[in-house]
Computed example of a mutant assay.
Amino acid sequence: MAATQGHGNPNWTRDETILALNLYLSVGGQVPGPDDPKVIALSERLRALPVHREAVKRDTFRNPAGVAFKLQNIRQVATGSGLGNVSAMDRSTWEEFGGSPLLVQRMANAIADQVASGEAVEAEITAVADDEEFAEGRVLTALHRRRERVPKLRGLLITKRRAEGRLTCECCGAGPWSGHPEMALAGFEAHHVTPLAEYKPGAVTRLRDLALLCATCHRLIHRAINVERRWVFPAQLSEMLGMPS
């Protein structure tokens, strides 16, 4: 199946496709042309994403004509009429989000906000592997990972849970894996439970935004979010895997 590249441009990422889908849904399926101000604005937004630094040097990269073409691709997936040169990314993004315009708008706004705020770091985005990318795209996945890895927050969360008398994984219920005082807590990690579409630029992560998980369950919940293509909470993972909650 051919992809909408054009002039040697890279394939469209999930983030880019979400932004294009948001425009398509906002205009009610009436695809605007390359001279439309909304298409031009989207072209500029796509070129600002820190995901294709080399390609953005080319005038053909995500230019208004290419954006209008992508909107026609989405129209074909949505209605069955129009251009037939659509990609697997077009189809999967439509299948997952085509019926949820408000969610698409929140995701598109969150992606754009992260880029505008400077929180979207290219090295972190490109480090997200295919089997780690959430349905909301790599920009927000990378931000999620960064917020979870703040050492101070993990330490405060462990201290809080210990004071509450529930120093166990919130998925499987396991406690510290070692009786050694300096190693007992090494298996615990902080997981950010806020859905990606609700992230706000510059927002302070609070302890109530975090769940304490063992390292195994933390990897499992990230994998579940990737496989299920939806947000999964710790209690839902417990139910999925038949674990005691």
Rank of each mutant, 00 (worst) to 15 (best):
I158C: 06
A142R: 02
A174I: 02
G82C: 11
V104Y: 03
A163P: 00
G118V: 10
P176G: 04
E124D: 15
R138N: 02
T141N: 07
P151S: 10
W177R: 06
P176F: 04
R161M: 10
A112H: 02
H144V: 05
E170M: 10
A135C: 02
V115S: 06
A120S: 08
G99S: 14
R162P: 01
R138F: 02
I158K: 04
L143A: 14
W94P: 02
F134M: 11
E124H: 12
V86Q: 11
Q114M: 15
A78W: 09
T79W: 11
R106P: 02
S81C: 07
E164S: 09
N85W: 14
D130Y: 11
E119Y: 12
A116N: 10
F134S: 07
A163C: 02
C169I: 06
I125R: 05
E96H: 06
V150G: 03
E148D: 12
A129G: 11
T93M: 13
L103V: 11
N109L: 13
V86W: 09
R149S: 15
M89H: 01
D130M: 08
A110N: 04
Q114W: 01
K160L: 15
W94S: 08
T168H: 13
E95Q: 15
L153D: 04
K152H: 11
H144G: 05
N85C: 07
E148T: 08
P176D: 05
L140P: 00
L83R: 13
M89I: 14
A112E: 10
C169V: 08
I74G: 00
A127F: 12
R75F: 03
E132G: 14
W177E: 03
V139N: 00
A108Q: 00
Q105H: 13
L102V: 14
A78Y: 07
R106V: 01
R145S: 07
R145L: 14
L143K: 01
R161P: 06
L143D: 02
R145C: 04
E95M: 13
E95P: 04
A78P: 08
A88C: 03
S178K: 09
S87M: 05
T93S: 10
A116K: 09
R162G: 00
L140Q: 03
C171Q: 08
R145P: 01
C171V: 15
I125S: 07
I111K: 00
